[in-house]
């Protein structure tokens, strides 16, 4: 047998084993509750809904176009949303557009009250009492934050709270990139 071939045959199982181990280890280390969105790089799904404050104002998917922005899914029954609210206020004060989607809340009054007392970081407040809009986005819990580019394409989904740490390490660079592309 050719010497080179012998080496290949000898080491092939080892290389294959390492590749398989790396592949499986990747799955082992990931958080199973954090699912990849099925809508990454897809345009925002069509929806129709109303304003949280004034239900006579109607909105559709066109509110999520025109500039890079965040879509934040929240509810008053969600403790993690309470935890991230301060930080969303801060992001809003830095001029980052965030659209709020109030998801299956206990009541509209409760949600409005929350925004009146804790501050309203949202440029637009979408009201989704039955979770129909959220269903189109594949929302499976709150809070979830979608990063949408200026063309209205979903580029990233963050599950869980947005805080100073993950904003600095992962989310801010994503937003910065969307802004850069828009220029």
């Amino acid at each position: 047998m050719n010497k080179n071939l012998r080496w290949i045959v000898l080491f092939a199982p080892l290389v294959l084993f390492i590749a398989l181990a790396a592949f499986l280890l990747k799955g082992l280390g990931s958080d199973p509750t954090k699912l990849d969105s099925a809508l990454i790089n897809e345009p925002v799904p069509a929806f129709k809904t109303v304003d949280l404050y004034d239900t006579s104002i109607a909105y559709d998917e066109s509110v999520l176009k025109g500039e890079p922005m965040l879509l934040n899914v929240w509810a008053t029954w969600c403790p993690t949303c309470r935890a991230e609210h301060e930080f969303l206020n801060q992001l809003a004060s830095e001029g980052i557009p965030i659209v709020g989607l109030n998801y299956k809340d206990d009541s509209r009054e409760k949600a409005v009250n929350w925004l009146n007392t804790l501050g309203d970081p949202y440029t637009v407040n979408l009201f989704d009492p039955e979770g129909d809009v959220a269903f189109e986005f594949g929302v499976y819990g709150a809070p979830e934050t979608y990063f949408i580019d200026e063309k209205g394409v979903i580029r990233y989904r963050h599950v869980g709270d947005v805080n100073a740490r993950n904003w600095q390490s992962t989310l801010k660079p994503i937003y910065e990139q969307l802004k850069q592309e828009a220029q």
Partner: peptide, 8 residues
Amino acid sequence: MVERYGNF
């Protein structure tokens, strides 16, 4: 469902 929530 798969369109919205993925193969999962």
